[in-house]
């Protein structure tokens, strides 16, 4: 998939994803060792985006399992299309029950969900299991099984084994500690907030219209906010949003009034806005 760590960085950059050395190295290793990649980090640092970028670079289809509270086998693996089965039964062709049963548990009545979809088929696939920490613990057991053998058994149909293992990316905001067993299956990558230089490049890429000097100022202010003890510090997503906002306002330098007026783009809690206002000395207005 990749020839070197630099190759990873260069090709991800072409799709608009700027990888830190840690990100590029780990993606390279995951591809080489054929292991799932667990990406952990705060919201908005580009975890989901990374999986999408890898799929694009590899020319692979992206299959995404979005986890949420209560996501279960029927959402993750497969489900039988009961309505269709009922119709088929009541259509009542001239046949024995055994024949009907064989028929309604056939391929035609199966609704594959992301895990099964990713395992079937021969095209290169990136399987993104997004926000794994939101799923219940039982779901982890299921993931563990699938990620160990890359096969899924549908009792009525038999066992489906991957002919080509997907490149698996699991993400987590660490809302809940994932089990040790699942972690052991994976290579581990923590994405934190980027270094100033990388963040400037990300902003330049997304908001090229903003001048270099203002981009640098934007990143410095965000860095200062991250050093404060806030409920929720701004992430890369907010930095990019803020840059867009400043461009739209036609600001060409930062001043107190602009920062004050747009702080709500960076900070979501009133407490945080109050605290940052004080620490940045904005109250002198």
């Amino acid at each position: 998939m990749f020839t070197s760590v630099d190759d990873v960085s260069a090709r991800l950059a072409e799709t608009g994803y700027l990888a830190s050395p840690a990100v590029a190295t780990t993606v390279f290793l995951a591809a080489r060792l054929g292991k799932p990649l667990l990406v952990e980090g705060p919201a908005g640092v580009g975890k989901t985006e990374l999986a999408k970028a890898v799929a694009q670079v590899a020319g692979a289809r992206l299959v995404r399992l979005q986890c949420y509270e209560g996501v279960d086998e029927s959402r993750a693996l497969y489900e039988w299309n009961h309505a269709k089965q009922l119709l088929r039964i009541s259509a009542g062709r001239d046949e024995s029950w055994d024949e009907t049963r064989t028929d309604i548990f056939g391929e035609e009545f199966l609704l594959p969900r992301p895990l099964l979809t990713a395992i079937r088929g021969d095209e290169p696939t990136v399987l993104l299991i997004d926000e794994t920490d939101k799923a219940d613990v039982e779901m982890e057991g299921l993931l563990l099984e699938v990620l160990s053998d890359f096969q899924i058994t549908v009792p009525e149909l038999g066992t489906v084994t991957a002919t080509r293992r997907p490149f698996v990316v699991l993400t987590s905001n660490a809302g809940r500690e994932l089990s040790e067993a699942l972690r052991r299956r994976c290579l581990f990558l923590h994405i934190g907030f980027p270094e100033a230089e990388l963040e400037r490049r990300i902003v330049r890429l997304h908001v090229p219209g903003l001048g270099a000097a203002l981009t640098a100022s934007v990143v410095r202010v965000v860095g200062a906010l991250r050093a404060m003890d806030l409920r929720k510090v701004p992430s890369v997503a907010e930095t990019v949003d803020w840059a867009h906002t400043l461009l739209a306002l036609g600001a060409d330098t930062l001043d107190e009034a602009v920062v004050q007026d747009t702080l709500g783009v960076l900070l979501k809690h009133q407490d945080d806005i109050r605290k940052a206002t004080a620490k940045l000395d904005l109250e002198t207005l």
């Binding site: 840690a22 780990t26 290793l29 990558l189 934190g192």
Partner: peptide
Amino acid sequence: EGLAATLLHGV
């Protein structure tokens, strides 16, 4: 980074 990715399980 490579050793951290293979040996560690948490930040």
